[in-house]
C-alpha cells in the first residue's frame, strides 16, 4: 500500500496553483482532502507524477450568503457543513448530504470541491448539486468561468473541467419561503457509499401544486443524474400520495443501476422508488412549513 513516487508542490496562493497546474499539465493532480485520491494512489489506481496540494491556499474554506446565494469555498470540509448554523437552518439538504458522507474522521479532511470534481457516481454531493441547481466556479489558465451543475457531470468519473482547471467555488441558490428540500441515503453500513440516495428540491404553491422540482440520484447510474421524468410527474400537479407515487415510479424506471455487492438491479430500482417517495414527501412537508 505504498503510493508511487511523486513530486510534491504546495502552492501558497490560487494564482500559483493555476500556474503549477498549467506547467505540469496532465502529469499533475490536485490534492485537496485526499480521501479519494490517496486511497487510489495506495492501490496505484492513480500514479500522478506531480501532486499540487491546495490545502495551504488561504481563504479557501468558507460558507457565506451573498446576493441570494450560498457561496462555498472549494476547500470547505464536510465537517464545516455539519457545524454551520447557516447551513443547518438555511440549507438543510446540504447539512443532510454532508452528514451521511463517510465517517466523521474522513469528513474532517474531505472537501466539497474534491467530492464534486472527483465525480464518482457514488459520491453524495453531485446529486444534491443537481437538485439545488448549483453553479460550479472553475478557474484555469484562461480565467474563471461558471458551469451549471447540469453541464458539469458528463461521464463516468468525468467532468466539464478542462486540463489545468480547478473548482474554486460552488454557489447554491437560497431557498424561497415555499422551497422544501432533502437528501435521503440508504447505505449498507455506517460510513459506506450509498446503495442509492435521492436528493429532492421542490416548491409548492399555496394551492398545494408543485411549481418546480429537481431530483438528483446517487449511485444508480454511471453519471450523477437528474430524474427528469419524476420531476415532470410532479410539476404542475397537486402534491398528494398519488402524484408522489407516480413520480417515485418514474425515478425507479429512469435510473440505470448496475448489479454489484450492494445488490441486484431490481432491488436498487425498488429502493429508488421507496427513497424517492419518502424524500418527496419530506420535501413537500418542509415546503408547506409543516416540518423542518
Amino acid at each position: 500500500m505504498i503510493p508511487a513516487a511523486f513530486d510534491y508542490l504546495a502552492p501558497a496562493s490560487l494564482d500559483e496553483a493555476i500556474d503549477l497546474l498549467a506547467r505540469h499539465g496532465p502529469d499533475a493532480k490536485i490534492l485537496s482532502g485526499g480521501m479519494s485520491l490517496i486511497p487510489a494512489m495506495k492501490i496505484r489506481l492513480a500514479e500522478p507524477a506531480v501532486i499540487v496540494d491546495i490545502n495551504g491556499i488561504p481563504d479557501f474554506e468558507y460558507l457565506r450568503e451573498e446576493g441570494g446565494q450560498l457561496h462555498i469555498g472549494a476547500m470547505t470540509r464536510e465537517s464545516a457543513f455539519e457545524q454551520s448554523g447557516l447551513v443547518r437552518h438555511g440549507y438543510p439538504i446540504l447539512f443532510e448530504t454532508a452528514k451521511v458522507i463517510a465517517d466523521p474522521l474522513v469528513r474532517n479532511r474531505a472537501t466539497i470541491g474534491g467530492n464534486i470534481a472527483h465525480a464518482d457516481p457514488a459520491n453524495d454531493h453531485p446529486a444534491t448539486m443537481l437538485a439545488v441547481g448549483a453553479t460550479i466556479v472553475a478557474r484555469g489558465p484562461n480565467g474563471t468561468r461558471e458551469i451549471a451543475a447540469d453541464d458539469f457531470f458528463n461521464g463516468f468519473f468525468s467532468t466539464a473541467l478542462e486540463d489545468g482547471e480547478m473548482v474554486t467555488e460552488i454557489r447554491v441558490p437560497a431557498p424561497t419561503a415555499r422551497t422544501g428540500s432533502t437528501y435521503l441515503k440508504f447505505e449498507r453500513k455506517v460510513g459506506d457509499y450509498a446503495i442509492a440516495a435521492v436528493a429532492v428540491n421542490l416548491e409548492v404553491d399555496e394551492a398545494g401544486h408543485c411549481t418546480s422540482a429537481r431530483i438528483g440520484l446517487t449511485n444508480v447510474s454511471d453519471v450523477p443524474m437528474r430524474a427528469r421524468n419524476a420531476e415532470s410527474a410532479l410539476i404542475g400537479h397537486a402534491v398528494n400520495a398519488k402524484s408522489i407515487e407516480a413520480a417515485s415510479r418514474e425515478a425507479a424506471a429512469e435510473c440505470d443501476p448496475k448489479a454489484d455487492l450492494r445488490g441486484p438491479v431490481e432491488y436498487k430500482r425498488d429502493l429508488v422508488r421507496v427513497l424517492a417517495g419518502r424524500a418527496i414527501g419530506r420535501a413537500v412537508a418542509r415546503a408547506q412549513g409543516r416540518t423542518h
Binding site: 500500500m1 510534491y8 485526499g34 480521501m35 490517496i38 486511497p39 495506495k42 501532486i51 465517517d103 466523521p104 474522521l105 474522513v106 474532517n108 479532511r109 460510513g191
Partner: peptide, 22 residues
C-alpha cells in the same frame, strides 16, 4: 484503506486518519 481509524491522531487539534495524509 482509510476505514478502521486505528491510525487516528490530531493535526492542529482535529482528529484525522494518519494513513490518509502524506
Amino acid at each position: 484503506t482509510s476505514h478502521c481509524g486505528a491510525c487516528t491522531i490530531h493535526v492542529e487539534g482535529t482528529p484525522v486518519k494518519s494513513c490518509t495524509m502524506f
